[in-house]
């Protein structure tokens, strides 16, 4: 089995399916993300990331726009 590579959400491309491995953000951002369903192990689809402007992702039925700062602190692997 090939080793799955950990990368920042910021570096994912539109259309990728990924799973959250770690979140390195401030406590209050962590808990807000948790309130939106973004926790370790959550699977998500990158809806839009073209390097400029916010990154749009979908976790289950929830769509979220994240700033670059947030997307740098969320580490994911492809699924």
């Amino acid at each position: 089995m090939t080793e799955k590579i950990k990368e920042r959400l910021l570096d994912c491309s539109s259309g990728d399916f990924v799973e959250i491995i770690e979140i390195h953000l401030e406590g209050q951002d962590i808990i807000r993300l948790a309130g939106l369903g973004m926790v370790d192990g959550a699977a998500m689809r990158v809806m839009k990331n073209n390097g400029r402007g916010p990154i749009i992702i979908r976790v289950k039925q929830t769509r979220l726009a994240l700033g670059h700062h947030e997307a740098k602190g969320i580490f994911v692997k492809a699924i």
Partner: peptide, 11 residues
Amino acid sequence: AKASLILELPN
């Protein structure tokens, strides 16, 4: 601090 963005896009 830089403005953070965590924004839900509702249906």
